[in-house]
Design a protein around this nucleic acid. Structure first.
Length: 269
DNA sequence: AGCTCATGGCGAG
DNA sequence: TCGCCCTGAGCTG
């Protein structure tokens, strides 16, 4: 689940359920027990997301830094909370709600200064109002690395994962292997603006949909389809299936330990 | 029951 | 580039 849109949605949902309350804080699994004891009964004052990093603010200066990694999951529910299973790293629970965090790469109690250093090593996030796309382009334009790899580099741009990278490159007809230095300013501007729209939609829908209205199965007179990860996409995980636009087989290849997907006809340059 | 794979990222070599 | 960390679903037997 976790690309940037998921994390921003989680920041909203944690706030909606717990901001202004002082929940019980526990770590049934045990790995976060010491910090949980320190936070138990403290007020959740605010939440924040930057890229794939989630921050839960307690009191004035305590932050819980959460990164879901590839496997992390968050589950909300209404009180009464059921007995936690033994993989729950962090549970918040109050009179009306509970939320369980499982399998995160990171769940740590940090200071304001430590939080600042996390922000400093992340690039601009299309979902944050303070984001500066020019800062990202400054890195892209002087890099020989492929645009596909650059889009996954959180120091360059924060929040894009394997789905958004594949889909946004398809939507702009960009060959994923093109070096960053050959991406024009106009192309970057278009990609960035598109990501802002796609990722905002992702926060709202809590899933990734990238297919334009004119390319839906209905619009193209084809039978309805369901992509197996819950959103409607052009190329992600569609290896060897026909491109929705031109019918060419979608290709896949490993790139930096992840699977890349693209249409060799629609993304020729 | 065991294997593979997954929308991530780190550090060692 | 590889191995490793975190978990669970969907296969295969």
């Amino acid at each position: 689940m976790p690309e940037g849109h998921t994390i921003h949605r989680l920041a909203q949902d944690y706030a909606a359920r717990f901001q202004g309350t002082a929940p019980r804080v526990t770590s049934p699994q045990g790995k976060f027990s010491d910090a949980a004891d320190l936070l138990d009964g403290a007020e959740l004052t605010r939440t924040e997301a930057h890229g794939k990093h989630l921050f839960l603010g307690f009191r004035d200066t305590d932050w819980v830094h959460i990164h879901l990694g590839l496997f992390g999951k968050v589950a909300f529910g209404d009180a009464p909370a059921p007995a936690p299973t033994d993989t729950v790293r962090l549970r918040l629970a109050d009179a009306t709600s509970y939320v369980d965090l499982r399998g995160p790469t990171t769940c740590a109690l940090i200071t304001e200064a430590e939080k600042r250093s996390v922000h400093e090593r992340l690039g601009p996030d299309p979902l944050r109002p303070d984001a500066d796309p020019a800062a990202a382009y400054a890195r892209v334009r002087r890099s020989r690395t492929t645009i596909a790899a650059l889009l996954m580099d959180q120091k360059v741009i924060a929040g894009v994962g394997n789905v958004y990278r594949a889909e946004v490159l398809f939507r702009h007809g960009i060959d994923p292997y093109r070096p960053g230095r050959d991406i024009t300013a106009a192309e970057w501007q278009a990609v960035w603006t598109d990501l802002v729209g796609l990722m905002r939609d992702g926060v709202r829908a809590n899933r990734i949909d990238t297919v334009r209205p004119e390319h839906t199965p209905e619009a193209m007179g084809r039978p309805p389809r369901v992509d197996d990860h819950g959103g409607e996409v052009y190329v992600y995980r569609r290896a060897a299936m026909p491109c929705h636009i031109c019918g060419t087989e979608i290709r896949t290849a490993g790139l930096a330990a992840r699977n890349l997907f693209w249409c060799p006809a629609c993304q020729r340059t």
